[in-house]
C-alpha cells in the first residue's frame, strides 16, 4: 500500500504528471474574478471565501480523471486488481494520493490567493480549516466519479456532470465556514457538518468506488 502511494506521488511530481496544474488553475480563477466583478476591494473581500472555495473545487475537478485513466490506459489497473490488495484499499490509496498531490497544495496556497482577494484577516484561520477539512471529501467523492467513468473514452465532461452535484453539500458547508469566519461569526455548526461529510465520505464511499471499479474492469 505504501508502495502504491509513493508511486502515485512520484508519478504526479515527475515531468508530465500534472502536479502544479491544479494550482495554476486555482491562480487563474482567482486572477480572473476581479476582472469579471470589478476591482472594488470591499466586494472582493465579501465574495473571497466563496471564490476561493469554488476555485479549489474546480482545480480539484480538473485533475480527477487522472486518478484512474492513466493506470487504465497502460494496463496497470488490471495488474493492480490482481495484486494482493483489496480494491477498497486501492481506491482509498488513490484518493489519498490525489489529496496529497492536489488538495494539500491548494490548502497551502489558499492564504496567498486570499491576499489577492483582500480577505479580512480574521478569515484566514477558518478558510484554512475549512479547506483542510473539506478537500479530502472532494478527493474521495471525485475518486468515486473517476471510478464510474474509468472505461469511457472522453469521460471528462461526464465526470464533471456526475461529480458536481455530489460536491454541493461539501461546497455549501465549506464555503459557509469560510464566509462566517470572514465576517467574524460563529462557524462551529457548518464546520461540524463539513467534518461529518468528510469523515462519512472517507468511511463509506471507497466501498462504492471499489464496487464500480470492479464492474468496469470485468
Amino acid at each position: 500500500m505504501k508502495a502504491l502511494l509513493l508511486r502515485d506521488i512520484r508519478l504526479a511530481v515527475r515531468a508530465g504528471g500534472g502536479f502544479g496544474l491544479g494550482l495554476a488553475f486555482f491562480l487563474i480563477v482567482v486572477v480572473l474574478v476581479p476582472f469579471g466583478v470589478g476591482p472594488d476591494s470591499g466586494l472582493l473581500a465579501r465574495i473571497a471565501p466563496g471564490i476561493l472555495w469554488l476555485g479549489a473545487l474546480l482545480s480539484c475537478l480538473l485533475s480527477l480523471d487522472r486518478i484512474f485513466a492513466l493506470d487504465w490506459e497502460d494496463g496497470s489497473l488490471d495488474l493492480l486488481a490482481t495484486a494482493p490488495l483489496p480494491m477498497e484499499a486501492l481506491v482509498s490509496i488513490k484518493s489519498l494520493a490525489h489529496w496529497l498531490t492536489t488538495g494539500v497544495p491548494l490548502v497551502l496556497a489558499s492564504p496567498l490567493f486570499a491576499l489577492l482577494l483582500s480577505l479580512p484577516s480574521q478569515g484566514y484561520a477558518p478558510l484554512l480549516m475549512s479547506l483542510a477539512l473539506g478537500t479530502p471529501a472532494l478527493s474521495v467523492i471525485g475518486t468515486f466519479g473517476a471510478a464510474l467513468t474509468v472505461g469511457l473514452k472522453r469521460g471528462g465532461l461526464l465526470l464533471s456532470l456526475l461529480v458536481l452535484p455530489l460536491y454541493v453539500p461539501t461546497l455549501i458547508f465549506g464555503a459557509e465556514v469560510a464566509r462566517r469566519g470572514a465576517m467574524g461569526l460563529d462557524f462551529t455548526v457548518p464546520l461540524a457538518m463539513l467534518a461529518g461529510i468528510t469523515f462519512g465520505a472517507i468511511a463509506l464511499l471507497p466501498f462504492a468506488s471499489a464496487a464500480v471499479l470492479r464492474v468496469n474492469l470485468r
Binding site: 512520484r10 508519478l11 504528471g17 490506459e73 497502460d74 496497470s76 488490471d78 495488474l79
Partner: peptide, 15 residues
C-alpha cells in the same frame, strides 16, 4: 495464485 500479463504492460514511462 495468479500473475497476469495482458496486452498492456502497465509501465510508467517517467519511472
Amino acid at each position: 495464485a495468479m500473475a497476469y500479463a495482458g496486452h498492456a504492460d502497465g509501465i510508467k514511462s517517467t519511472l
